[in-house]
Design a protein around this nucleic acid. Sequence first.
DNA 1: GATTACATGTAACATGTTACATGATTAC
DNA 2: GTAATCATGTAACATGTTACATGTAATC
Lengths: 218, 218
Amino acid sequence: MAKSPERAIGPTSYSILGLLALRSWTAYELTKQMGRTLHHFWPRAESGIYREIKRLVDRRLAVADTEAVGRRSRTRYTITDEGRIALGSWLATPHEPGLLESEALVRILLGDQGTKDDLLVTMQRMAEEADELRTQMVTLVRHYAGGTGEFPERSHINHLVAKFLLDLSDLVSDFTRYGREVVTAWPDTAGRPPDEATMERLRELIQNRSTGAARASS
Amino acid sequence: MAKSPERAIGPTSYSILGLLALRSWTAYELTKQMGRTLHHFWPRAESGIYREIKRLVDRRLAVADTEAVGRRSRTRYTITDEGRIALGSWLATPHEPGLLESEALVRILLGDQGTKDDLLVTMQRMAEEADELRTQMVTLVRHYAGGTGEFPERSHINHLVAKFLLDLSDLVSDFTRYGREVVTAWPDTAGRPPDEATMERLRELIQNRSTGAARASS
DNA sequence: GATTACATGTAACATGTTACATGATTAC
DNA sequence: GTAATCATGTAACATGTTACATGTAATC
């Protein structure tokens, strides 16, 4: 009785399912929890969560039961065995190609169509976002290191993600520092024959970098 | 006679407009050009480009003219003055918050719901993607450094983007090397009371990192 | 008891992807 | 001359966001 070749569901649905794998949550709790960690690298509007979770129920990957809160109702969701299996199967499939997606980089690439100031502001904001990410991650890691993290049994996993995000925030800080320095020295953003400083910086980039995958680790 | 409060358009549309700011392109050329550079940090399906470009024409940010190729027609698009202005205005607005989006990280975060092997494969694939990105960027930078880049007058901008992507590919290579080492040492991915090795790694993460924004540059 | 913030959604619409369709060109 | 690949899209559907709507709890 499976309802025809079910369409595949995506990372957003599986993220929710992943949270449900830990415990049951009300819809509202789910939106908040998604906002805490996941939104750093998978930001989604809250309203979408409400819809996705109902799709999970349609597919019997989760079940809903209703509690009353005054005159209004609240829905609590719990993962099913089928749900756990589906989650496991998904994790065994390869991820979509592509390391990242970033609007800020798009703006930098289009930088010559805006003012110098626009570019500097973009990088300034990237730097601020990196600082905030670092702060949040340091706080989180402190909790885990002190044994007060929210799901202590997940310390090993969270440590991996935190490591990545901390390294990334450092990368962005360094990049924006470099970028703001470079851009400040430009007369403006406009296209122009490459100057010697730019050529030198281009050469620096490939210094010690081969075309191949091989790379010296520090 | 502007048609009521026009909805804002997004980064995808402005990316196309940004390409049009350089020269005029046929729709097909646009899809290919988007695939070359932009898709590394703003991947979009080709079919969407065909639709977006028509929306740009609707809004008079670009104009289309039709050329014949045998019995079939081809459309060439050119930016309008209005288009250049719109692009400039957009670049003066702040970007959406969020440094990046990454499905691979989602999978790592859900790693304890899959097998050790799934996690290792995810990181393996990340490493491969990083290698490929590095290779492509090195090649591109070599061209620019040698004066044979496609839009040499954009060397200064492209150098910034290339710098970011090269640093990122190094970060991912380092992270996945670290991650695979750590995960290999686990008995399995399952949740469990944090062991001493994990706690030590957590402490390492915040070593020399303050909660605040301040950060020593190397 | 009025105001504000928290909790819980729905409707409308914009954006993105998959699958298909078909003409033109190139390689054999 | 036929198969493969390049070029050029459209249709259908899935996903994502914005704007709204309204009940509940906290606070003053």
